[in-house]
Amino acid sequence: MAAPYGTPEESAGDDLRGRALQRLKRKQAFYRQLTTYLIVNAFLWVIWVISGLNGGSWFPWPIFPLLGWGLGLAFQARSVFGRDGFTEAEIQAEMRRLSGD
Results as ranks from 00 to 15, higher is better:
29 A>T: 14
70 G>W: 04
32 R>K: 13
35 T>I: 05
22 Q>C: 05
91 I>K: 13
22 Q>L: 11
91 I>T: 03
53 L>I: 06
76 Q>H: 12
37 Y>W: 08
45 W>G: 13
64 F>K: 13
58 W>G: 08
48 W>C: 09
9 E>W: 12
85 G>R: 07
95 M>C: 06
71 L>V: 14
63 I>Y: 09
57 S>T: 06
67 L>D: 00
21 L>V: 10
29 A>M: 12
56 G>F: 05
95 M>L: 13
100 G>Y: 14
91 I>S: 06
79 S>M: 06
19 R>K: 15
83 R>I: 00
2 A>K: 14
48 W>A: 13
40 V>M: 12
24 L>P: 02
3 A>E: 07
97 R>A: 02
85 G>H: 05
94 E>F: 05
7 T>Q: 08
4 P>K: 11
82 G>N: 04
9 E>Y: 14
39 I>H: 09
78 R>Y: 09
94 E>L: 06
67 L>G: 03
11 S>G: 08
95 M>W: 07
8 P>A: 14
22 Q>H: 11
39 I>D: 09
54 N>R: 02
72 G>S: 07
87 T>R: 14
63 I>F: 14
18 G>N: 13
63 I>V: 07
56 G>R: 01
37 Y>N: 08
38 L>K: 03
79 S>I: 02
38 L>N: 09
18 G>P: 02
48 W>I: 02
30 F>I: 06
86 F>E: 02
35 T>F: 04
4 P>L: 12
32 R>I: 09
81 F>P: 07
12 A>Y: 08
94 E>H: 06
15 D>Y: 12
35 T>K: 01
67 L>I: 04
52 G>C: 04
87 T>Y: 13
13 G>Y: 07
101 D>N: 15
95 M>S: 05
60 P>M: 14
63 I>S: 09
54 N>G: 05
36 T>H: 08
74 A>F: 08
31 Y>S: 08
88 E>R: 15
95 M>I: 09
